[in-house]
């Protein structure tokens, strides 16, 4: 008798209500659309996440590597009850947030990856996914961890999260924090924004294609320069490198 191993390996997803798209205005005056993306669009996201694996700053490398694995797991049916939201500005990918449902009353936040910095795009994305957990899926609380100091400030401090340190989070087994419905309600007026419905022209632009970010985070000029300079107190190598770079730019 043959056994279809795929049926064993593939988790059974529970039905989850869809996220209703919304949009909001950024400090720049641009509109950002938040919408749910499904399996067919995951390959587009993977293309834009992969370069960030090589960005050795602000933990982009760790977060991007994990997001890549989570998206791939979702795409290849190796992740249970995951959802993915994309934030797009004029079609361009600005952030990805994802999470999953653990039980009908418990959610788990996976990642918030901002591909454009400085406009609270990541913060808006995080708020949107909490809205999805609490308001749409009806979760009582969401388990959260931060992998960077920026994330810690944005989630643990701004939302005043409660400790659930007895629960190891799925991300690295580290102690969890939790956003409860009550905490979310308290934060709602200050941190959760967005307008619905999304005007058709904005939504259509977002749905048309996930365009690559035009100004993604990039690696530092030379991630080893600071380390090397510890052995090179005159900083000669760094300065020479910068001058060579400038010369190159002048000649370009």
């Amino acid at each position: 008798m043959s056994v279809d191993l795929e049926k064993i390996l593939r988790p059974v997803d529970h039905e989850m209500a869809p996220y209703e798209p919304k949009y909001m205005m950024l400090a720049s005056g641009e509109a950002v659309v938040v919408r749910q993306v499904f399996r067919d669009e995951i390959p587009d996201l993977l293309k834009h996440v992969e370069p960030l694996i090589h960005v050795e700053r602000d933990f982009y490398d760790v977060v991007a590597a994990r997001v890549y694995a989570e998206l791939l797991g979702y795409y290849q049916y190796r992740f249970q009850d995951q959802y993915v939201l994309a934030l797009q500005v004029d079609g361009e990918l600005a952030a990805i947030v994802n999470g999953r449902q653990v039980t009908p009353t418990l959610g788990l936040s996976l990642h918030t990856l901002a591909l454009r910095r400085g406009l609270r795009i990541g913060a808006h994305g995080f708020a949107a996914k909490m809205e999805y957990h609490i308001d749409t899926l009806g979760h009582d609380e969401v388990l959260i961890v931060a992998e960077s100091p920026i994330g810690f400030r944005r989630w643990m401090i701004e939302y005043k999260l409660e400790k659930r340190f007895h629960i190891p989070h799925e991300l690295g087994g580290v102690p969890s924090w939790a956003l409860t419905r009550e905490l979310f309600d308290r934060a709602r007026s200050k941190l959760v924004v967005g307008r619905r419905p999304v005007p058709p022209e904005l939504l259509n632009k977002a749905m048309e294609k996930i365009l690559p970010p035009s100004d993604p985070p990039t690696p530092p000029l030379d991630p080893l320069a600071a380390t090397r300079s510890m052995y090179d107190p005159t900083a000669t190598s760094l300065v020479q490198q910068r001058w060579e770079m400038e010369k190159g730019m002048e000649n370009a």
């Binding site: 400090a27 005056g29 406009l119 200050k190 967005g194």
Partner: peptide
């Protein structure tokens, strides 16, 4: 340091301004 354009609408006049610019 800051290489990010901002607008009056985004930081003062839009419904999201208080969150963008608390």
């Amino acid at each position: 340091h800051l290489q990010q354009e901002i607008s009056m609408e985004g930081i003062l006049d839009s419904p999201e301004a208080m969150t963008n610019n608390p």
